[in-house]
Nucleic acid binder design. Structure first.
Length: 677
RNA sequence: GGCGAGGUAGCUCAGAUGGUUAGAGCGCAGGAUUCAUAAUCCUGAGGUCUGGGGUUCAAUUCCCCAUCUCGCUACCA
């Protein structure tokens, strides 16, 4: 691996609609910070940039719900998260935000450059427009009836009941979320980045030149490239975001996926006038730390943008992590299923390193992992306290007791002494090798092995016995133990920065560079050390129980929320009711609609006729099991084509809150075609 | 439905280009030890490597089928 002149580390911009949780940390920020600190202590020219991603529809929706402005929403979370990162020791050189002026300028310029160069395709299409508020409606701003499952509250991009993704124009009875009025279709123009044009280049760049990327990253890219890329819109009709810098583009902003990664550039510009050195010099190595949900944006789209612009460098690697689960459940901001960083910092003050350690040791590098509080406790008590903390404590206490806090002279070395010292070099190189290839868990394990080595060394040499008749030998043993301890302050620096600061104080030892970890001796004989405190404290069962209780409470509240019934709908006239023609019918045949997850094609005997009905129930029923079933069916519903099959009616189902479906069947056998009223 | 990643000891995870007794940490059992936050050190028990086929002298590692988990994406590989 050739050595670049400098590094540019980016960490995924957290979306400013919620606080940071352990999933973010384990997936992105802990590894990126370890990597950055590692490069810094190696004396490399490195900058780490990040910031809040503050645009996009969800933030405007949140603002509307809470009756505040989008700016107020992002101000709140930007400040919370910026502080939480700082307090947690994530050392970004700058934590910026996409709502600031520099970003608007940078993003506009970037767009304009591509625009002037004729990179974009302009396309007009019909989109829903709210005549009352005079705005185009993003998909999320439209609700209506899902054509698949009949849910009345489906969004324009997706029905959350049946999970189908939709086009806003698919919805039956569409309704504007903003005004409640019925939207109308209106022509609107958008700009598309023709990703298909970069397909050939991307294939070569990723599939041939970056085979070393992690399998999850490489596989995902390959999947996209094999499918063939399509032009993708880079603008939206919205008034929250960076305005499209083109005449006649009123109320149009840059789409977030285009806007956000440019945030890395604007953050760098804000940090230093010398920013181009980091973005445009071939001797810079850029690394994107992200979660797996961001892979295509950072490996396909952003590189295409950079390539289209032409003067920028491309990422050298994109070490995306998988996801972290919490106590066997997916972490979810909306369901409050998370360990929030700002809460952790309050509840475990001064114990940043414990969480950093646990999240690194159990990082989801190759597959989704699970965070449990019990594991958190165990790793703290059995590893940090018992291995690292304990070794340090034994060494410093012995030195204070036997040599009054002075580093003793080193006498003649035994073979074992020499091997122990040599092992530091071996382990240091292992840590390096792992970090250089983004294997952080392995790196941490090897670093901890230095403390393990120390414990074993003390157990084998038994200075507390030897002291009775060979004080000089004990001096040598402790000298070597102190050497190990000093090395630890360097090797563990990227992982456990807070502990390392304490340890250095006790050792009375200045910060040193990475390669100094194998300098011998680091502490010269006679050097005075201070008296130590404890590096880590044991975490008690009751603290863990408290955290688990907290999560159980969340579960309970979520359940209560879910079990709340929808309020009754508005009253209707009897006439409206009599318009419905519901009959009993028998299912004659049922088969899965090919290439769908939820749809069954049913043939019914309604007494009046035999007809076909498409129903979104395949997840709950096997076709074979429901043949012969007596059901209720609305027979005068206007026929509708679903997946190319004309559905002539609707089967009545009762739906539990968890989505489970139950047939509304006559309690006793009745003849087909009997009217239900 | 398609595609991608994963399913390895009780738990959390490693296992590059296939090769003699499949690894680590924690947990567990036994022993040693007391300098240390009852921490440490040694030894040991524990796996039909999701299931079923196939290729090969040889497969956890390659191919096919099934199944489960996660992610991406949907008239489309």
């Amino acid at each position: 691996m050739s050595d670049p002149k400098r590094f540019l580390i980016t960490s995924a911009l957290p979306y400013a609609n919620g606080p940071i949780h352990i999933g973010h940390l384990a997936g992105v920020y802990v590894p990126s910070d370890i990597f950055t600190r590692y490069l810094r202590i190696k004396g490399k020219d490195v900058i780490s940039v990040c910031g809040s991603d503050e645009h996009g529809v969800p933030i405007t929706l949140k603002a509307r719900n809470e009756g505040i402005t989008p700016q107020e929403v992002v101000d709140k979370f930007h400040n919370i998260n910026k502080k939480a990162f700082e307090d947690f020791g994530i050392t970004f050189d700058i934590y910026s935000r996409t709502s600031n002026k520099m970003h608007y300028e940078t993003a506009s310029q970037f767009f304009r450059t591509l625009y002037d160069r004729g990179v974009f395709i302009e396309k007009s299409s019909n989109q829903y427009f709210d005549p009352e508020t005079n705005t185009f409606l993003a998909d999320r701003y439209i609700t209506g009836t899902c054509p698949h499952c009949g849910n009345d509250n489906a969004y324009g991009d997706q029905c959350e009941k049946c999970g189908t993704s939709l086009n806003a124009t698919d919805l039956i009875n569409p309704k504007s979320v903003i005004s409640g009025s019925k939207p109308v279709l209106k022509m609107t123009k958008h700009w598309f980045l023709p990703l298909d044009k970069y397909q050939g280049w991307l294939k070569k760049w990723i599939l041939e030149e970056h085979r070393e990327w992690k399998t999850n990253v490489y596989g995902q890219c390959k999947s996209w490239l094999d499918q063939g890329l399509q032009p993708r819109a880079v603008s939206r009709d919205l008034n929250w975001g960076v305005p499209v810098p083109v005449e006649g583009a009123d109320n149009k902003v840059l789409y977030v996926w285009f806007d956000a990664p440019i945030g890395y550039i604007s953050a760098t510009r804000e940090l230093t006038d010398d920013w181009e050195k980091y973005w445009k010099d071939k001797d810079t190595r850029m690394v994107h730390f992200i979660g797996k949900d961001n892979i295509v944006f950072h490996c396909i789209m952003f590189p295409s943008m950079l390539k289209a612009e032409g003067s920028y460098i491309l990422p050298d690697n994109v070490p995306a992590n998988e996801f972290l689960n919490l106590e066997n459940d997916k972490i979810s901001t909306s369901r409050n299923w998370a360990v929030w960083l700002h809460e952790y910092l309050e509840e475990f003050p001064g114990e940043q390193d414990v969480l950093r350690y646990v999240l690194c040791a159990n990082a989801p590098e190759a597959k989704d992992n699970d965070f449990t509080w019990k594991d958190f406790q165990a790793r703290n008590n059995n590893e940090l306290v018992a291995i690292f903390g304990n070794f340090v404590n034994r060494t410093l206490v012995l030195t204070n007791n036997y040599f009054n806090g002075h580093v003793p002279e080193r006498g003649p070395l035994t073979q074992y002494d020499k091997e122990t010292l040599k092992e530091i070099t071996v382990l240091k190189e292992k840590v390096e090798k792992s970090l250089d290839s983004y294997r952080f868990r392995e790196a941490l394990k090897e670093a901890m092995n230095i403390a393990r080595l120390g414990n074993k060394y003390l157990a084998d040499t038994e200075p507390w016995k030897v002291i009775k008749d060979d004080r000089a030998r004990v001096g040598t043993i402790l000298n070597i133990s102190l050497q190990l301890t000093a090395s630890l302050t360097i090797i563990l620096d990227p992982f456990l920065p807070f502990s390392v600061v304490k340890l250095r104080e006790w050792l009375n030892f200045e910060p040193r560079q990475w390669d100094d970890a194998v300098v011998d001796p680091l502490l010269s004989a006679g050097h005075k050390i201070n008296s130590p405190e404890l590096l880590f404290r044991k975490i008690e069962d009751k603290e863990i129980d408290f955290q688990i209780e907290k999560l159980l409470l969340t579960k309970k509240m979520n359940r209560e929320e879910e079990s709340q019934l929808n309020p009754a709908k508005d009253n209707i006239h009897f006439d409206d009711f009599t318009k419905l023609d519901i009959r009993s019918a028998t299912i004659l045949d049922a088969e899965k609609v090919p290439k769908t997850k939820k749809l069954l094609k049913l043939t019914l005997d309604t007494g009046l006729d035999k007809r076909t009905v498409v129903s979104g129930i395949a997840e709950y029923f096997n076709p074979a099991d429901i043949i012969g079933k007596l059901v209720s069916v609305v027979v005068n519903l206007e026929p509708r084509k679903i997946r190319g099959i004309e559905s002539q009616g609707m089967i009545l189902m009762a739906e539990e809150n968890n989505g489970k479906l139950v047939f509304m069947s006559p309690a006793e056998s009745v003849s087909n075609g009997s009217e239900i009223k």
